[in-house]
Every structure is written in C-alpha cells, then in structure tokens.
C-alpha cells in the first residue's frame, strides 16, 4: 500500500491505495464517486474519463499511485458553485444527448477538457476530442450538437 494525497473536485484527500489499483477504483470504491464507470477496463471506451491536471484521461488505465500530488476532476464536481448545472450538463439534457447514460459522465468530462482548453472548437475538433468515448445509443449526432451549443453558451 502507498499513501497518496491529491485533490478531487477541489477537496484534498489522503488515502492508502494498493500499488496495482487504478484511479477509477479509488474514485468508485474509496471515494464513492460513481460517475466514472468501467466500460472496458482497457482505455478503449472512455466511460471512465476524468480530468487530471487539466487533461482528460481514462482513469481505468491511470495508476492510482500516479495521482499523488495531482488535481483530479470528476463529473460530480462539475455543477457550478451557484448550484446550477454546468452548461455542458444542461445542453446534454436539452439536446437529447443522453440515452442509456452509461457513457455520459465520461463523455461530459472529455467535452469539458476540450472546452477548458479550446473554448471555440469546430465540429471536427469536438469529434476528435470525443472519439475515445464510445456511445452505442445516440449515434453521437446530438452529443456533438450539445457540445457546440455549450461552447456557444459559455462564450456569453
């Protein structure tokens, strides 16, 4: 076991983790943050996407020990301080970008990482950023629309 300290959604946490644990299991099991989910366990579906030090990562492939000293954001931390939904969450709801919802937390986090860095993406850039998040239900069209709409809204 190793003791790690990192920041999750603005809150510092310290805990003991097994050396072969991934960040996803620490979030799910130790911190009871269930938003990120295991869809494949091999970094190929993106359902476990969270943001580490400002970039989207697949937390199933991220060694928990490596999170030590870093800043982690999950979908649970997305709601604004005012208590209202993040624009991405609102547009995902309003544009029909959610069906079964299993991919949604990861999808939203990939989109947030994109918009944090590039507030004004074009459609292709959105697709590149989300290509690692598989969705079997929606066919992606409404998801891309939702991300572009959120980008518009965030410019206001």
């Amino acid at each position: 076991m190793k003791t790690i300290t990192f920041t999750v959604n603005g809150n510092p946490v310290t805990l003991d983790v097994s050396e072969d644990a991934n960040l996803l299991s620490v979030l799910n099991d130790d911190l009871e943050l269930a938003g990120a989910k295991e869809g494949c366990g091999a970094g190929e579906c993106g359902a476990c996407t969270v943001i580490v030090d400002g970039v989207a990562v697949t937390s199933c492939l991220y060694p928990a020990c490596e999170a030590d000293g870093r800043v982690v954001e999950t979908v649970e931390g997305l709601v604004l301080e005012s208590g209202s939904l993040h624009p991405l969450q609102r547009t995902f709801v309003d544009y029909g970008a959610v069906q079964c919802g299993f991919c949604t937390p990861g999808m939203v986090m990939s989109a947030k990482a994109l918009l944090d860095k590039y507030p004004n993406p074009n459609e292709q850039e959105v697709k590149v950023a989300l290509a690692g998040n598989i969705c079997r239900c929606t066919g992606y069209t409404q998801i891309v629309e939702a991300v572009l709409a959120a980008a518009e809204e965030m410019k206001k």
């Binding site: 979908v75 709801v93 299993f102 949604t104």
Partner: peptide, 16 residues
C-alpha cells in the same frame, strides 16, 4: 421534451 432521467445521468447520479 428532455428524457426524464437525463438530469441524473449528466450529474453522474443515475444508479446502475
């Protein structure tokens, strides 16, 4: 009209 449980799903609160 948005899907009824979409809110919980974007919040990561829907329980599977």
């Amino acid at each position: 009209i948005p899907k009824s449980d979409a809110l919980y799903k974007v919040l990561g609160q829907a329980q599977y």
